[in-house]
Design a protein around this nucleic acid. Structure first.
Lengths: 255, 255
DNA sequence: CAATAGATGTCGTTC
DNA sequence: GAACGACGTCTATTG
C-alpha cells in the first residue's frame, strides 16, 4: 500500500505508473477534466472527483452523486500516464470498440495504490435462474400435468426459458421474470410462441411467470391468448393463476 | 479532507460517522464481509475491497476487477455505522424496495473523507435522442417525402420514437437504435406498428433505423413487412436503405 | 408512484 | 467474436 496526501502531480504520476506496472488498484481524488470519445463522446469540465483504476484495466470516474460512474472504461483497457503542461494525464484506451478516456488532473488531494487480496466471489440467490430451477423441479407449480422438456430452448427468434407440454399435449413456452413483468417481457413471450407454434405445427401455449405484471403487459397477453401465472417471491413461493377472460377482464383463482 | 492510514476500527468509525453527518464522500479500503438482502440476497466472504459512500447515500463495494460494484445501494439510502464485537459495521438501508446492505470490516488500510466540490455536469453527444433530432430536422434522410408529425408518440403499447407520414399518406412509425439493432428492437417496432395500424385503421409502415442489424432481427422485420434503414454513425451520418425483398433476401441501395 | 425505454449500459453464456 | 438476454440493472422522463 502506498498513500500520498496532497501529492504533487509528479509524485502522483510515479505512483500511478507503478500501480499500472504492478497491477495494483489505484485511487485518486482530485480536481480534473474528463474527456471521452468512442461509441459516444462527452466532455466533463473541471471538478473534484474520485478516480479508480483497477488491475484489470477498468477505470471509473465518480462524481459525488449517483451509483454510476460519470465516465468509465471497462475491464481490458490499457491505461497510461503522462505529465503534460496542462496537468497529469491518465489515458485509457480500448481496442474494440475503439474508445478513449482522458482524465486530466489539475491537482490532487489523494493518490494511493493497493494490493487487494481477495479470492472470494459473490454468492447470490433469488435470480431468474433460481426461479426456473424451482419450477423445473416442481412443474405442478405451473399447473397440474405440466411436463417440462427443455430449458433454454433455442428458437429462431430467441431462447425460451422453459419449454414443455401440458396434460393435453399442447406445447407450453414459459417466460420467467424475477420482478414485475412489463411490455417487453410480454412481447418476448409472444415472439417465442409465434415462432414455436409455426415451427412445430401445433398449438403452443405461452405463459409468463412473474411476481406481478403491468396492466398493459397483461392486456397484451390477453389479446394474444397468452397466460400469466403469478409467483410470490421466496421464501413464500406461492403460485396463482390469473385467468384470461373475454374482453381483457382479469380474475385471480388460486389452486 | 481527512485521511487515516491503517486506522483502528474505532478511529475509522469516527471518521465514517462524521462523513455521514456532514455529507462528505467516504473512501474505505480494507478487509470485509458483505451481506445483502432485498430484491435478491447475497453473501460475500471476507476479502479486501474498496468501499465508497457518497453524500447522496449511494454505497459501492468494489472488488479488484470489473466495472460494476460487487454490492451496492443506490442514492437515497440511509447509512449508519456501528462498532460491534465482530468488527466495524457499515449498514445501508433502503426504504422501497426494502433492502439492506451490511459491510463488516475486519481491518482497514485506509479511511478517508472528502468534501468534493463539483458543479459541473457531463455533456454527452451521440445518444439516441441526437439521432432522432437529426432525422426530425432532415426527414429526407429516411426517404424523400417523409413528413415527421410526432416525436415520442404514445400508443397503448409503448412510445414510438418518431411518427409521421410518407408521400402516399401511409403512417410511418420509426424506431431508432444508436447501436446494432437486435431482436428486441425489431419486436418493439412490430408491437408499435400492430397497435397503430389497428388504432388508426390504415396502413402504417414500420422502419427500424440503426447503424447495423443482426441477421435474425432483419429476418423478423422482413417477415413482417417492416423496413430497415442504415445510418452511419457521426460524424459521417450517411443513410442507406436495406430493401426488403421477397423470401427474406436483402439488398442495399444508397440514395 | 407506476410505467416505459435508453444506456458509452455491463456481464455471462452459447454458438 | 457475434448474438442474445438477465441484471438486486440504473437513470431519466412522463403521466
Amino acid at each position: 500500500m502506498t498513500v500520498l496526501i496532497g501529492p504533487s502531480l509528479e509524485d502522483a504520476k510515479e505512483l500511478l505508473a507503478a500501480a499500472i506496472r504492478d497491477k495494483r488498484l489505484a485511487l485518486l481524488v482530485g480536481s480534473c477534466v474528463v474527456n471521452y470519445v468512442g461509441r459516444a463522446g462527452s466532455v466533463l469540465p473541471e471538478g473534484e472527483r474520485v478516480v479508480m483504476l483497477k488491475p484489470d484495466g477498468a477505470l471509473l470516474v465518480h462524481q459525488k452523486k449517483k451509483r454510476e460512474p460519470v465516465n468509465w472504461n471497462p475491464p481490458g483497457c490499457e491505461a497510461s500516464v503522462r505529465l503534460g503542461g496542462k496537468g497529469l494525464q491518465l489515458i485509457s484506451k480500448r481496442k474494440r470498440p475503439k474508445e478513449q478516456l482522458l482524465i486530466l488532473f489539475k491537482s490532487l488531494e489523494l493518490a494511493a495504490s493497493f494490493e487487494l487480496v481477495d479470492r472470494e466471489e459473490l454468492h447470490l440467490v433469488g435470480s431468474e435462474r433460481d426461479l426456473i430451477t424451482l419450477v423445473s423441479n416442481e412443474p405442478s407449480l405451473i399447473e397440474p400435468g405440466f411436463r417440462p422438456l427443455e430449458r433454454e430452448k433455442l428458437t429462431k427468434y430467441g431462447m425460451v426459458d422453459l419449454y414443455g407440454v401440458d396434460r393435453d399435449g399442447n406445447g407450453v413456452a414459459i417466460e420467467f421474470k424475477r420482478r414485475r413483468a412489463e411490455l417487453a417481457s410480454a412481447s418476448q413471450l409472444k415472439r417465442y410462441v409465434d415462432e414455436l407454434s409455426k415451427k412445430l405445427g401445433k398449438r403452443v401455449r405461452g405463459i409468463l411467470v412473474a411476481p406481478s405484471i403491468t396492466s398493459s403487459a397483461l392486456k397484451l397477453l390477453n389479446e394474444n391468448q397468452l397466460e400469466y401465472v403469478r409467483i410470490r417471491k421466496p421464501p413464500t413461493y406461492t403460485f396463482e393463476r390469473v385467468v384470461t377472460r373475454e374482453r381483457g377482464q382479469k380474475g385471480i383463482s388460486e389452486f
